[in-house]
């Protein structure tokens, strides 16, 4: 049994009186794609923010393989190999698409510069389907292209763990298929991924295992079919009368 890439142990985060993440533990195996799902406001994004170091946990522990990253700063966690995208896509508007991707492989887990960085970035833009947009000003990219760009930037760091925060949200059906295929390819290559997502089709197609959160608490953890038929999960999503 190999060590999990990420183990979260009894993690709690409170903002003043509000407990956004309450005593949560789970593990992500190497090469696994874990879905983190739950109703709005259940603490999923806070969880990603804790893992990526945007917030410091109140108590509990986060390990990236054998490294304790619990109280490390965001940039240190990035250097250990955690890359992420954002719920509301965040590209760097004054840079070109290529520079946006290069930004991902200079300071983080991968430290390239010069020709190497440029080649890697170009390859990734091809990979996500933005080959013809290498020099496009980023503000004239369409929404899905901006999302692709953000993904390419995250991938540029050769992440050991990739965090996708509703990366598929807001895409139209045909874009969604492209997006699902892209993530599916990443998983097949062995990238470990945590995906916060509302798109149920994508979760069914992609996830190896799911953690369900509701009001900051973990209410289910297991295979996709198991958790989606769990009465507790149905109650959290749809209310008591459906359970």
């Amino acid at each position: 049994m190999t060590q999990p890439i990420l183990s979260v142990n009894k993690l709690t985060k409170n903002f003043g009186g509000l407990i956004a993440v309450n005593d949560i533990s789970f593990q992500v195996k190497k090469g696994e794609l874990m879905g983190l799902i739950g109703p709005n406001g259940s603490g999923k994004t806070t969880m990603l923010n804790l893992i990526s170091g945007a917030f410091k946990p109140s108590t509990g522990q986060i390990n990236l393989e054998s490294t304790d990253i619990t109280n490390q700063a965001a940039h240190m966690i990035a250097r250990h190999g955690v890359a992420r995208t954002f719920q509301l896509v965040r590209i760097l508007p004054s840079l070109t698409a290529l520079q946006n991707v290069i930004a991902g492989c200079v300071y983080g887990h991968v430290k390239l510069w010069g020709e190497d960085a440029q080649q890697k970035a170009e390859a990734l833009l091809h990979r996500v389907g933005l080959a013809e947009h290498i020099n496009t000003p980023t503000d004239s990219l369409t929404y899905i292209d901006q999302k692709r760009l953000e993904l390419a930037r995250a991938l540029a760091a050769n992440p050991r763990l990739l965090l996708l925060d509703e990366w598929l949200a807001g895409l139209n059906p045909s874009e969604l298929n492209i997006g699902i295929q892209l993530i599916s390819d990443l998983r097949d290559e062995g990238t470990s991924i945590i995906m916060v997502e509302h798109v149920m089709d994508a979760i069914r197609q992609l996830c190896d295992h799911c953690v369900v959160m509701s009001s900051g608490i973990k209410i289910a953890d297991g295979s996709v079919d198991d958790v989606l038929s769990d009465p507790e999960v149905i109650r959290a999503y749809l209310g008591d009368e459906h359970a």
């Binding site: 990526s52 170091g53 945007a54 700063a73 965001a74 940039h75 990035a78 250097r79 890359a83 992420r84 954002f86 965040r90 760097l92 508007p93 004054s94 840079l95 930004a103 991902g104 200079v106 300071y107 983080g108 887990h109 930037r153 760091a157």
Partner: peptide, 12 residues
């Protein structure tokens, strides 16, 4: 451009 992104890219 975006300090939050910068941090998550590994920039101190």
């Amino acid at each position: 451009n975006d300090e939050t992104v910068a941090k998550h890219l590994g920039i101190n």
